[in-house]
Computed example of a mutant assay.
Amino acid sequence: MSKKVVSLLFSNYKNDNRVFKMANSLAENGYDVTILALCYGDVPEAETQGKIKVRRLKLKSSKLPSGNKIFGSIKYLEFIFSIIWGYRKADIWHCNDFKPFMVGVMARFFNRKLKLVYDCHELESERNGVTSIERFLVLKVEKWFIKKSFVIHVSEGIKSYYKTKYGTADSRTEIILNTPHTSTYVKSNVLKERLNLLPEDKLYIYQGGLMKGRGIETLLTVFTELSEFHIAFMGYGAFEEKIKLASKENNNIHFVPAVPYNEVVTYTSSADYGLISVENICLSYYYCMPNKLFEYVQAEIPILVNALEDCRNFVEGNGIGLAVKEETPESWREAVLELSKRDKSEFTSNLKKVKEIYNWQNEEKKLLEFYKKV
């Protein structure tokens, strides 16, 4: 009989390729998988994605007024107990981030046989913007319950942090990187053509969230000065208007709305270099390994990365790009000029090797082996 897995997340599950890839890998290999999310926005309450069942909870209390703490507490309690009561008989809860893990801990009081997989997408107690109360709660719940659970991390740095802090056993932890499927490389010019650039124009790309803490303002400053190089910001977020304004004032700065996930690598391969400019403003960012890193690898473009431990070690250790020395516009400017002078061919052979190692086909094998222990 197939083990029943509930993949729980506190969003409407509209754009989360990591959650989908994990659920799909499990479903394709004999697990009975349900993704459980919230129902808001333009998403259906129920749908099927391949062998995955997707269920989104629509709360009766959602009609209560917003902005009231009492009503907010009622909504939260309804959500928690709807999940626990409706899905308490599952074999495994795959908890995406801390809040679902906390609900999973409560669910175990109703089903002592329930196994929890705590999928830490970040270093939860050291996230950007976490409040002192949230940090206290995360630290206490993790301290009491993490060693009784199975834990997935997104980088070596975060895994080491948890092992040092809580003594988590290697046999109950695994690193699953957020890599895309490996692709047969076909160089594309779709992005340069869309931006009316010549094939020989040097194009840098930043893709992902356009928001505070991602180094967007620094990149705008740098490329305003380096008008001989082009930069495309591909994604969505609070800084869209700021980028659009800069693009009107600078012919080398471009905004490209986010494209469907299955087209990302095609667009990326049209650029010459990939940028990772996440700012070192919290430990979670310092140890991050964002999916754009591996998308650049699959597109076989050299990478310029900020001074973040795991990213820097990955890029420099594999010889697939350069690392910026300091988080200043001056240091970024020097790094852009240095990378632009290099012959791209010195990185190409390494990129081809690395993409055969760091892809979802290989991460899936790790996931399935890990689930055999659960």
Rank of each mutant, 00 (worst) to 15 (best):
N318L: 07
K115C: 11
D343H: 13
D170G: 06
A107C: 02
G321R: 06
K53V: 14
K187F: 05
G129F: 10
A23G: 14
V154C: 09
E200D: 09
S2T: 04
E279D: 11
E249C: 07
E228I: 10
F109Y: 15
L367A: 14
E78R: 06
Y371A: 04
K69S: 07
Y371H: 08
C288W: 08
S331W: 00
T184W: 07
A335N: 05
E45Y: 02
N189T: 10
R55C: 10
F98E: 07
F314D: 00
G167M: 09
K355P: 06
E334R: 14
S25Y: 11
V54P: 08
K63Q: 06
I35E: 14
E142N: 10
F255N: 03
K372V: 02
V6D: 07
K4N: 04
M22T: 14
E225N: 08
A323F: 04
L195C: 11
S188G: 12
F294Y: 11
V5P: 05
K75E: 00
Y185H: 12
T266R: 13
C311D: 03
V278Y: 08
W93K: 04
L139I: 09
N96L: 12
I216C: 02
I276N: 12
S331N: 03
N262L: 13
K344S: 14
E295Y: 08
R333T: 12
K202N: 05
Y118V: 01
L195T: 15
V43D: 07
Q361W: 00
T164I: 11
K148W: 01
Y40I: 05
C311P: 05
L210Q: 12
L9G: 03
N196P: 01
F101M: 08
L36R: 09
F255H: 10
I243H: 05
F10G: 01
G67Q: 02
T224D: 00
